[in-house]
Nucleic acid binder design. Structure first.
Lengths: 215, 215
DNA sequence: CTCCTTTTGTTGTATATCCAACGTCTTTGT
DNA sequence: ACAAAGACGTTGGATATACAACAAAAGGAG
């Protein structure tokens, strides 16, 4: 229990809450952590979630129908947005090396009245904020990826970053490979495109420092 | 007021609420609708939202930094996810022909205690559900778009649809042009790719009916 | 039925992207 | 200072995609 709380304190879901408050929430609406042996399936596509699963120890591998997968680390929610929705899962979660999972009753999250205490509400706010932030990030990347050409994707990203940083001279937080992955293009092709854009006077750059010359 | 409520009843944000309950919410946490003349800027990039803006009449054009834009219709939230986050807007909203906007104090949405009545909570749940559903849809499309080739995008979409419909024979709700737009590829190129996939025995289809032959 | 519109499939060409391989320049560690 | 590793840029060839233009099929209105 003590250990569980220590892990949860570093989770964004419980940001701003004291140990005592977390403990109160746990006794109020969570079950004991569940242990899963190595290689076991934790969540199955088609399942209907009634709890919010939080990874305490070990790791989780989320696999989607198309074969793509991502790894979840301790403190993270297994499925952020699905936790707030009564929809069926479209992905499967497997733990390669075993894990323990804390499940918080999701009916307690947005339900009214009696069980609502102030620390409970703060967790709810954290969760909602998490999901909303995720949504904003996703829709931004979506706008970049929906561009057809590498050049358009780059300009879309760079101008978004310029808006965020309130300047036409920006410093990007990604190296070339990360940027290429983020925009879903080939690194070398992207590098080449950047050169062309620089040659044409559209932009200038040096490592992670970029300047955008609008039109 | 009466008119406002009629419009709101068709909004997903107020689903499941009676006229009386909506009225209660409005008097409790909304200001009078604001009118905007044709051509005026309603929201500006860099603004910090403190209210949830709902479009009552007219139309809103949301323009992003990259030049892309979308149109909002009456009853819809202007900026779903941003309403739940204290982040600065990265888009601008302009009304081409004028509009009226209802602004609900967002501090009332997730704040604790006194002002929380049961109908209030239902609106909050609706909003959160809206944002979460949006997030799920976005991250699904993102998985498709992050595939490099048209073929992979198609397979990613079709298998996701197969999981959703629990069958390898599926009916898709999009025509070819809509599907191409959704996957951000050229329609004719996509059509050609579909033919090749059919010729290679990967899939079969007839109009909107598809069958997937795994591997 | 015919005409018209819309949707879907096909083809050819110019162009863009991927991919692999290599060279240069930083950075890091010893 | 040196070697090793990593990041970045460049090039060329195979392939895929966009784009435009057209053909075929389906659906609707008269």
């Amino acid at each position: 229990m003590e250990q569980t709380i220590t892990i949860l304190m570093s989770s964004p879901l419980f940001a701003g809450l004291t140990k005592e408050e977390i403990e109160k929430i746990l006794t109020c609406s969570a079950t004991e952590p569940w242990q899963y042996p190595p290689g076991s399936i934790v969540l199955r596509a088609g399942d209907l979630l009634t709890t919010i699963p939080i990874l305490l120890t070990g790791s989780l591998e989320i696999t989607h129908g198309d074969g793509s997968s991502e790894t979840i680390h301790p403190g993270q929610l297994a499925i952020p947005a699905n936790a707030l929705l009564p929809t069926r899962l479209t992905c499967t979660a497997r733990t390669p090396d075993g894990c323990s999972l804390l499940c918080i009753d999701s009916s307690r999250i947005l339900e009214p009245c009696s069980s609502v205490c102030s620390c409970h509400l703060r967790m709810t706010r954290n969760l909602v904020r998490e999901v909303a932030a995720d949504s904003v990030k996703n829709s931004e990347r979506l706008r970049h990826l929906s561009k057809r050409s590498t050049r358009e994707k780059l300009l879309s990203y760079l101008t978004a970053e310029a808006v965020r940083q309130c300047s036409d001279h920006i410093v990007i937080p990604l190296d070339r490979q990360q940027l290429a992955d983020y925009l879903s293009v080939d690194r070398s092709a992207m590098s080449a495109e950047l050169s062309r854009m620089k040659a044409e006077g559209l932009i200038d750059y040096e490592r992670s420092h970029f300047t955008i010359y609008h039109k």
